[in-house]
Amino acid sequence: MSGHGHESRVAQGPQRSREPSPFGLAARFDSVDTFLKACERVRDAGYRRWDAYAPYPVHGLNDAMGIRHTRLPLVVLGAGITGAGGALLLQWWMNAHNYPLIVSGKPFFSLPANIPIMFELTILLSALATFIGMLAFNNLPMLHHPVVNSPSFDRVTTDRFLIVIETRDLAFDESRTRALLEAASGAEIAWVED
């Protein structure tokens, strides 16, 4: 659920010093095209613990970052099936089993009369799972994240693009990472304090 899924790899890596180190190195971009190309370069350089920040969902960025599909739809499917099954069980148990109701001489249990509520509960549970699942997979709500310390972050939710490579990444090397971001024409490269 961390959103990265590389903890094991990091844990097996060489012992790191315990001194407080910056969270990562950030590069700001002012246009979406250089930003996308830069993301591809970071991806191809083999970095894993890094993220790209944009003021809107940029198409092609998932590929450029090498992000795999999320499991969210599976969770939603499970919730939907639970909703449909639960609604059927609820109606059968209440109207046909626990307190059988005779309505217009119809059978105690018949599927067609139960379909509208099954449908509504399918949608209700799926929608709740979508929302809660999206937040959970994204580790939200979150009170604080180091990236807000980046000098360019305030503009990221308006019109700037940002790439942040974490120092925890195994491939992180101060001079090489900085050179990569510079070569990718990052406008402003700065440390992000933890």
Binding site: N62, L72, A127, T130, L140, P141, V147
Partner: peptide
Amino acid sequence: LGWRGSNRQWHRYEVAYLLLAAL
């Protein structure tokens, strides 16, 4: 809720948005 606009967030957000639209 601490939204950062990171693409790892946007990625799931967009899937969730599409799912909610489809629901």
